[in-house]
Structures are given as C-alpha cells and as structure tokens.
Design a binder for these strands. Structure first.
Lengths: 226, 226
DNA sequence: TTGAAATGATAGTAAAGCTATCACAAAAAA
DNA sequence: TTTTTTGTGATAGCTTTACTATCATTTCAA
C-alpha cells in the first residue's frame, strides 16, 4: 500500500491550483529543480517556462509572481514536515524522545516516498535552507501574514513549542525556543557548508555534530527550573 | 572631545570609496533611509539617485549593484558593533558580565554619537534585522566569502565565541552558539514585531523579555559541564 | 595653473516583470 | 451529441530594472 497525502494549500498562494493540472504539477516540480540549481535571485518565470516547455504567460496563470511561488514551495514543505512530526511522534510517549525525533526530522530532507507527487525532496530541503527566510523578510509581511500565508510555519512552531511545554511546563520561552530551533537547524546547516567558521563542525561537516548541537541547545535549556 | 572612528572597509565592497567624497557619503546615508523605508526588494538605484539628487550612473560609480551596497551597509554595522563590543567589554573582568554586555549591544541600535558620519543608526539596525541575511543567502556565497566580504561578521562571531570559551572552556559549541545568538537577537526581534506567535513576548513586545530569553538561552547552555 | 579626478547630463540596450488577446483543443455539462 | 466551459499555446507589447557608454564641465590637488 502506498499512501498519498493530500495537502490542502492556502488558496491565496496561487491563482490556479497547480495540483489540479498536469501543467501545474510540472511547474511546481521544475521550479524546485530550477531554484535549487540557479538560486532564487536568478530564477525567472521565463527560464521556468522554458524548462516546463510552456510560455511565460502559462506560468503567470498559476502564480502571481515568483515570490508567491517560493512561498508556495516553502509552505508545502512546512505542511509536510508538520505531518511528518505528527506521524512520527504519535507512538512515542517520552517527551524527551519526541523532541529528539523532531530535531532529527528538521535535520534532513523529507522521506522521499511520502508526499505524493514526484517532488525532489533533497532539492526542496536545500531551497528551504537557503531561501525560506526570504518568504517573510519583506515589507509586506504583515499583509501576507493576514492572508495566512505563514500559517503552516507557525503551526509547526506551535506544535514544537507544545512539546517543550509538555517536557517542562515551567520553561518560560517555549515558542521562542521553537522558532530558534527551526531556524537554527537550517542556518547552522547552511553555515557548516558555506561559512564554516561560524560553526563548530565546519571541518568535518558532520551532520551528527550539528544534530548534537541542536539537542544540547534545546534540551539543556528546557531543563531550566526542572 | 568627540571621537571619530574610522572604519576601514574591504575594497571589494565598492568601486569608489564612498567615504572619500561628499556624494559617496550622501549615497550611503540616503540608501539607509530609503532601504529602511521601502525595503530592499523595492529599492533601486534609480530611486536612490533621485533621493541623492544625482543620476543612476552616479551611483554605479560607487557600487557595482544594490546587493553590494547592502553588503557594504551591513558590513559597516558589523564592524561598528565589534568595535562597540571591544570597547564596552574592555573594563569588565567577569566573563558572565561580558556576555551580558554583548547581548545588550546586540539587542538595540548602535549608540548614535559614535561612528562618525551622520548615519541613521535606528534605520540601519532595522535594515540589519530585516535584510542582513540576504547578504549571504545567495548562490555566490562562496565567491563573496573568498573576497572577504563576510569577514567582519565572522570576526564578531569569533569574538563572541571566545567569550563563551573564556566563561567555560569545556563548552563544545562556542562558535555555533555565537552565530545562534547573533542571528536570534535579530530574528526574535523581527518575529516579536511581525510574527508575534513565534515568540513568547509577542503581546507585550517588551524588549526586556527578548533580552531575558537570549540571556537564558546562552548562559544556561554554556554552563553545560561546568 | 595645469592635469587628473569627480560629476552631470544624456542616451541606449538587454533582460525582467507583467498584461492582453485570440485561436484552438480538450473536458464537462447540457 | 452538441454546446459550453476551461485550459493551453502563441504572439505581442509595455513598463521597469539593471547596467554601460560617452562627453562636456566642474572641482580638486600637485
């Protein structure tokens, strides 16, 4: 049995639902490969159109602009990750183990055989690492936030924060620690590979060391006052 | 006595040293105001030229493109901040107090009467918060890193990491904790104001709470094994 | 005061970002 | 089955951004 997860995406993210047509799915699939390859700055709808064998106008029928498309991709990732967290934690009772599991999930790309569509999860993970902040670091955060574009990200953080509270109800900063964990899982990965002197694992580039750092960061903190 | 600090900037950051001419200084000064006002995405050299009462070509004589100009501004901030850290910590002997001082400096704009030029430090601080990551989150990190563009940022982090090691030589992740601290000082500030549910101080928006979070995050962690 | 350096003014090009129109095919509704 | 509706392809065009080039003029420094 192969399970197909259907993620309901916020309708403000697109003009026409890309999941509803073959062209739409191709746009999403190819955009991940292209952004991964050339970076979001150099990415244009014209280039994407060429990769998908359609026209620029064809892309614009699905997404308002490239920023919205990026939000779509990143949001899709957060949705899937939250699902993974939920699923993987389901059968664990020990709060500490749950937290460890979350850190593990944050530290690598999403398991390939999940999520339905033939998405390149490794490329998507790299995009999330290098580009996801650009999604909210803009002048129209407030507007986009009102349009619920960041809900999946906030939901994921809220869920992680709840795990912290479950572990230690007295820890005073569960939400900030959750957003710190999520951001740092990706930032430290980026630093490790690109600005290694900003980390303590820049030489070996050992993901397990990064993993350990995150565990220490979170668990050691959350035990506060326990 | 008024002290004038002269920061030597990496020559790869500009085509012509903006500090050497009146027009150059105006470009820097106005670019801070303009980026602060409209955000980096909407910021163009044409608009900047209008604000400075010069032509687009006039700007291009100083900076290769708007990205380089952003790197210049952010780098200038990191330089100044490191200077501030050095200066303010100089007369403190207690390692913990030094760390507290650094967190305090990270948490607010740079003191106005320092740094020489008539820079709007509040605007610059906001730019660093909202735009500084874009400086290295690009496809040419490696190239720019080789050109030493990120040296001031890395130097600052290294210095903070040294304070951690001084406090507890056994803490295994001083550098990652330093970059985490620097990034989170700014991210949590941004979240607090724009995506408040990602923090534990989104209601009151009390900077002291954020400050406390950072202190707890760092000090509680670094005591590990001490 | 003479030569070098900086600026202003203007022009122009390629690409990015976006909208509009029309013809045609395929799918859905009648 | 025949209409509609819906999605796609093709083409065109417009504005803005990003950037380069040229040349006359002003300012500055030796």
């Amino acid at each position: 049995m192969e399970l197909q997860i259907r993620i309901k995406m916020n309708e403000n993210l697109f003009l026409r639902d890309p999941e509803s047509t073959e062209l739409g799915r191709k746009i999403v699939r190819q955009s991940i490969l292209l952004i991964y390859e050339i970076g979001f700055e150099d990415f244009t709808f014209k280039k994407l159109a060429a990769a998908v064998h359609t026209t620029e106008a064809g892309i614009y029928r699905y997404f308002e602009n490239k920023h919205r498309l990026l939000v779509y991709l990143v949001t899709w990732y957060w949705n899937l990750l939250e699902y993974q967290v939920l699923y993987q934690i389901n059968n664990i009772t020990d709060p500490e183990m749950k937290i460890r599991k979350v850190i593990e999930l944050l530290s690598k790309e999403i398991d390939d055989n999940i999520g339905g569509s033939d998405i390149d999860h490794k490329a998507l993970y790299q995009i999330v690492i290098a580009e996801s902040n650009k999604v909210y670091l803009t002048k129209d955060v407030e507007e986009n936030n009102k349009a619920q574009l960041f809900k999946p990200y906030k939901d994921l953080c809220a869920r992680i924060a709840n795990l912290f509270t479950e572990y230690n109800p007295d820890y005073p900063f569960p939400r900030s620690l959750a957003s710190t964990l999520v951001e740092m899982a990706h930032f430290q990965y980026f630093f490790m590979h690109n600005l290694p002197s900003l980390t303590d694992f820049g030489q070996e580039k050992d993901p397990r060391k990064l993993h350990e750092f995150l565990e220490v960061l979170v668990l050691n903190n959350i035990r506060l006052g326990k």
